[in-house]
Write a protein that binds this DNA or RNA. Structure first.
Lengths: 197, 197
DNA sequence: AAATAATATTAAACTAGATTAACATTTATT
DNA sequence: AATAAATGTTAATCTAGTTTAATATTATTT
C-alpha cells in the first residue's frame, strides 16, 4: 500500500478522533491492504465477517438473497466510505449479507482480532467505532422512515439527490433492488419524470 | 428512586461491561429517576433529545408524523430496554421522532452532558454505549431486511413471535402502524390466521 | 465487424394492500 | 347503569407496484 492510500485512511479516522503520530504508525502496521476484482466477494452470506474495511477506490454492494432466491441490495459503498458488514463483524456471527465488488476495488482492512488488540493500545479507537456506528445507525433508521413515508418515485428522487455519484456508477436494476421495487417499475418512473419536465 | 430500581439499571449495564462498586456509585449519582403518566411525551419531534433512558416499568412508543399527518411507529420499549431517541441524542440535533408513554412509565435518565463527563471518569461506559449501539444497529438492519423480504402476514407473525409480551400490551392499531400496514388489513390478516387453524 | 451477454424499455394482466364507510365491541367516565 | 370515547371488524372499491413476456439498446468479447 502506498503512502497516499494510508493517508486517506488516517484522514478519515482523524475526522472523528485525533490520533497521535505514534498511534497512526501503530494502526498502519495492524491494517492490511487488498485489491479485489469486479465481481469478487469481500464477505459471503453465511460466513463470519472477519474484517472491517475502508474503501480506497471502487464500489461495493451489500445484498442478501431471500428464500425465494431474490436479491435485495441494502447499501452501496464507494471511496472514503466504511464498507463492512458491521452486524456480522461486531457479533462474529454468520453474515446475513454478501458484500460484492461491482468495480475493481481497493480496501484497507482491519481484522476483528487486531481490532480488539488495538482498542487496548489506542482507546480512542473505541470512540471512533462508536461514532461511526452512531452514523450507521442513524442512516439505517432514516431508511426505515423513508420506506414508511415515501412512495417509490419519491424514494428514487431522494436516492438520486442523496447519492448522485453512486447512481451514475451502478446499473439501474441495482438501484431498483436498493429501493425495493422492480426494475420495470423504476424504468416507468424514470420515463414519467422525463415526460413531466 | 429505590435501590431495587437502581440495581435493575446497574444489572443491565453489567451485562455488557463490568463496573466496580465505586463506578456504580458514581454512575448512580449522575442519573435521574423520573415518572411519566400514560400519554406523556419523553421527547417530541423537533426537540433535541437531552436524555438517554432506561425503562424501569411501563411502555413507550417511538413514532414520527409525516407531512400528510400520518403516524408511523418505529419501535416500542418495555421494562429493561434502552428507550432513547438515539439518533437525536448522539447528534444533539432535533429529533425526527416522538417518544410517548403508552402506559405509566418509570425511566432512569442520563443527560447528554453528564454522559460526556462520565465517559471521562468511566471509559468502560464508552464501550457500553458502543455495544448497545451495535445491537440497535443490527436490529435496525434486520427490520429493513424483513420489510424487503416478507409480506404483511409474515411480518406480523415474526413480530408476534419476537415480542409476544409487547403485542399483548398495546392496541392492535399500533401494531399495524409498527408493521407499516393499515389497521383494517391487520384485522383481516388476524381473521385469516384464525380460519387457517 | 459480428456475435454474445448484459442491461433497459414497454405494455397487458394481475395482486397485495389502501381507502372509505358503516357497524360492532370494548373500555373509560359520569 | 348509561353515555361517550376508544378500539376493532367487515366488505366494496380502488391503486401502487408486480409479474410476465416480448423487444430494444448498450457494452463486451471474439
Amino acid at each position: 500500500m502506498d503512502d497516499k492510500k494510508a493517508q486517506a485512511f488516517i484522514k478519515y479516522i482523524n475526522k472523528y478522533v485525533s490520533l497521535t503520530l505514534a498511534e497512526e504508525t501503530l494502526l498502519l502496521t495492524k491494517v492490511s491492504y487488498r485489491k479485489y476484482l469486479k465481481g469478487q466477494y469481500v464477505v459471503q452470506q453465511g460466513d463470519v465477517c472477519k474484517n472491517s474495511g475502508f474503501v480506497i477506490s471502487g464500489c461495493t454492494r451489500t445484498f442478501f438473497v431471500n428464500d425465494e432466491g431474490e436479491e435485495h441490495i441494502v447499501m452501496f459503498s464507494i471511496e472514503n466510505w466504511w464498507a463492512s458488514e458491521i452486524g456480522s463483524f461486531v457479533t462474529q456471527l454468520p453474515s446475513d449479507y454478501n458484500v460484492q465488488c461491482i468495480e475493481n476495488t481497493e480496501l484497507i482492512q482491519l481484522s476483528y482480532t487486531e481490532q480488539e488488540e488495538l482498542f487496548k493500545a489506542i482507546p480512542k479507537l473505541e470512540r471512533f467505532f462508536r461514532l461511526i456506528l452512531e452514523k450507521a445507525f442513524v442512516a439505517s433508521q432514516k431508511r426505515i422512515v423513508k420506506s414508511f413515508s415515501l412512495n417509490a418515485k419519491e424514494q428514487y428522487l431522494q436516492f438520486k439527490n442523496q447519492y448522485p455519484e453512486v447512481e451514475l456508477r451502478i446499473p439501474q436494476y441495482m438501484v431498483a433492488s436498493y429501493l425495493g421495487i422492480s426494475k420495470e417499475f423504476l424504468s416507468k418512473i424514470k420515463n414519467q419524470l422525463i415526460i413531466e419536465e
